[in-house]
C-alpha cells in the first residue's frame, strides 16, 4: 500500500528566498510522523506549503492518490486534510462554540457535524464549560484544545499539526500526544507533527524526520531516534 502523503522534491519559500529545498518524505496511513529540527529548519514552511498557504516552487505532493497542485486551500479540508497552524489556530474574537461550528460549516452531513462537536466537548471537558467564552479569554492549553478539537470536527484523514505543545504545561502536552496516538490507533488518523519538544514528539511518533536548513537530513523509525543516543546526539544535539 502506498503512503497517504507522498512528498517528492518539494521546494518553496518566501519571495526569492528558498526555505524548503527538495524535501522528500512519505507518511503511511494511520501513522504519526514527527518533523524535528532547529528554528529556521523549514518545519512550519513545510506544513504551510502542504496545505497550499504557500505555493511550491518545485516538486510535487500526492495526497490520497491525487496531485494537490492547484487545489485551493479552502477545498483541502473537504478532502480530509486539516492544518492546525502554530499559535493562532483559533479565531480569538469568536466564542468556543462558534469556533467549533465554523469547523463543521462546510460539511453536508449536518447531523454528523453536530455529533463531532459533542465528541469534542467530551474529549476536552474544559471547553464544554467555556462554550460561550470568547477565544481570547481562554488559557494557552484551552486554545490548543480548541484548535485541535475544531480540526477533528472535519473528521480528517490527515492532520498537519504545528507545535501543538508550545507553551503548554508538560502534563497537558502529554495528554495531547496520548490523544493523537489513540486517534491513530483507533480511527486510522494520520498525523504530520511539527514539534520543538523532541522527547514528547518521539514518545508517540512512528517516524522521525529531521530537518536542517530546509532539507530532510534523516528519516528513520522514531524508536531508533529514541533509543540510539549517538544518532540522537548527532542529529538533534542531546
Amino acid at each position: 500500500m502506498s503512503a497517504l502523503l507522498e512528498v517528492e522534491a518539494l521546494s518553496s519559500g518566501y519571495g526569492p528566498v528558498p526555505v524548503l529545498r527538495e524535501v522528500t518524505l512519505d507518511v503511511p496511513a494511520g501513522t504519526i510522523a514527527a518533523v524535528l529540527g532547529a528554528n529556521g529548519a523549514g518545519k512550519t514552511t513545510l506544513l504551510r506549503t502542504l496545505s497550499g498557504l504557500l505555493r511550491p516552487t518545485g516538486g510535487r505532493v500526492r495526497y490520497d492518490g491525487a496531485d494537490l497542485r492547484g487545489v485551493p486551500v479552502e477545498r483541502l479540508v473537504r478532502r480530509g486534510l486539516a492544518h492546525v497552524p502554530e499559535g493562532r489556530g483559533i479565531v480569538a474574537e469568536l466564542t468556543v462554540e462558534e469556533n467549533l461550528r465554523l469547523g463543521g460549516l462546510w460539511r453536508r452531513d449536518r447531523a454528523d457535524a453536530r455529533r463531532a462537536q459533542d465528541e469534542v466537548y467530551q474529549l476536552f471537558e474544559p471547553l464544554a464549560r467555556r462554550r460561550r467564552h470568547a477565544g481570547h479569554q481562554l488559557s494557552g492549553g484551552e486554545r490548543q484544545m480548541l484548535a485541535l478539537g475544531r480540526a477533528l470536527i472535519a473528521r480528517p484523514k490527515l492532520l498537519l499539526l504545528d507545535e501543538p505543545s508550545l507553551g503548554l504545561a508538560p502534563r497537558v502536552a502529554a495528554q495531547i500526544m496520548a490523544l493523537l496516538r489513540r486517534l491513530c490507533d483507533n480511527d486510522g488518523l494520520t498525523v504530520l507533527l511539527v514539534e520543538q519538544n523532541v522527547r514528547s514528539a518521539l514518545s508517540v511518533a512512528d517516524q522521525g524526520v529531521v530537518m536542517s536548513l530546509g532539507r530532510v537530513v534523516m528519516a528513520t523509525p522514531a524508536a531508533q531516534l529514541r533509543d540510539d543516543a549517538t544518532l540522537r546526539h548527532a542529529y538533534l544535539g542531546f
Binding site: 479552502e74 479540508v77 479565531v91 480569538a92 474574537e93 469568536l94 462558534e98 465554523l102 460549516l105 462546510w106
Partner: peptide
Amino acid sequence: PIGLRMRSSAFAPEVSRLLGVN
C-alpha cells in the same frame, strides 16, 4: 452560517481558509 463565515473571514482570513471558508 454565512454570518459566522463573514465574521471569521474578517477576523482571521488564513485560519478561515484552512477551515474551508471561501
